[in-house]
Amino acid sequence: KELVSALYDYQEKSPREVTMKKGDILTLLNSTNKDWWKVEVNGRQGFVPAAYVKKL
C-alpha cells in the first residue's frame, strides 16, 4: 500500500473529508482525482486536498 505524509494541518469541512495534522502518515487509497485524494487516517476514510500531502 502507498503512504503519504501530511504537509499541513487540514480540518475537514464535510463528512466526506478527514482531518489530518502536519506530519501525519496516511494510507493513500485513491489518487485518480488531481485535486482530492482519498486516504485513511486513524481508521477513517475520506478525502484531503492533494496539494496538502506528498507521496513517501
Rank of each mutant, 00 (worst) to 15 (best):
M20R: 00
L56T: 09
T32P: 04
M20C: 07
K55N: 08
W36Q: 03
P15S: 12
R44C: 07
V18K: 02
V18T: 06
E12V: 06
A50E: 03
I25S: 05
M20Q: 02
L7G: 03
V48T: 01
T32I: 10
L28K: 01
G23K: 03
T19Q: 04
K38H: 13
P49H: 03
Y52L: 14
K21E: 06
S31H: 08
P15M: 09
E17C: 08
E2C: 15
L29H: 06
Y10C: 03
D9Y: 05
N30D: 15
L7R: 08
Q45H: 08
L28D: 00
Y8N: 09
K38R: 11
V4Q: 02
W36T: 02
E17A: 06
F47L: 09
A51D: 11
T32G: 10
K1S: 12
L7F: 04
N33T: 07
L28I: 07
K54M: 14
V4A: 13
E40P: 00
K38V: 14
E12W: 06
Y10K: 01
T27P: 13
K21A: 09
K22Y: 06
V4P: 02
I25F: 06
Q45E: 13
S5I: 15
L56Y: 11
D24R: 02
L28C: 07
T27S: 09
L26K: 00
T27V: 15
K22R: 11
Q11D: 14
Q45A: 11
K13I: 08
Q45R: 11
K55P: 13
P15Y: 10
L3S: 07
K13H: 09
Q45P: 06
I25T: 09
N30W: 08
P15C: 11
R16P: 05
N42G: 12
E17I: 04
P15Q: 11
L28P: 01
V39I: 07
N30K: 07
K38P: 02
T32V: 10
L26R: 00
V39D: 00
I25P: 03
K54F: 11
D9G: 06
V53F: 04
E40F: 05
L28Q: 00
L28A: 01
K54C: 15
W37I: 05
L26P: 01
S14C: 11
Y8F: 13
R16V: 11
K55M: 13
S31R: 09
T19R: 06
E40H: 05
T32W: 09
S31N: 10
Q11W: 13
V4R: 04
N33P: 04
L29E: 03
L7P: 01
T19I: 03
L7V: 09
K55G: 07
E2D: 11
E17D: 05
L7C: 11
Q11K: 13
R16Y: 14
A51C: 14
Y8H: 11
G46K: 02
R44M: 08
A51N: 12
S14V: 05
T32H: 11
Q11L: 14
D35Q: 12
A6N: 01
K54I: 14
T27M: 13
L26E: 00
K21F: 10
T19M: 04
L7T: 07
D9P: 06
D24F: 04
T19G: 09
D24Q: 13
G46R: 02
Y8G: 06
L3C: 13
L3D: 04
Q45L: 08
D9T: 06
E2M: 13
R44L: 08
K54Y: 12
T32C: 15
